[in-house]
Amino acid sequence: MQHEYQYFPITVPGKGAGGQTGTWRFVRPVVNLNKCIGCRACWMFCPEATIHVIDGKVEVDYDYCKGCGICANVCPVKAILMEGEDQ
């Protein structure tokens, strides 16, 4: 039996709970796949879970990446560069 006035403070896990956070970004990580060795350091430290390693290579989910630059900083082979969004 459902009661239309009953509404509970519960939420479900989902992407974008803070919005389309890719719009916050003013610099974007660009991965040089020729340099990438698939070590996953960027994946490990990404605070937004927007780095995906597919077939040993890195992809960035630009819908949500906030452009903090941690991935570029931790990359041991400098395969990720931060570029201005206007470029």
Binding site: Q6, I10, P13
Partner: peptide, 17 residues
């Protein structure tokens, strides 16, 4: 009860509304 906090169905209770 209206819901149970349990990993079986991972819902959250009480984040910002």
């Amino acid at each position: 009860q209206p819901y149970v906090i349990d990993p079986e169905a991972p819902i959250g209770m009480g984040n910002i509304f």
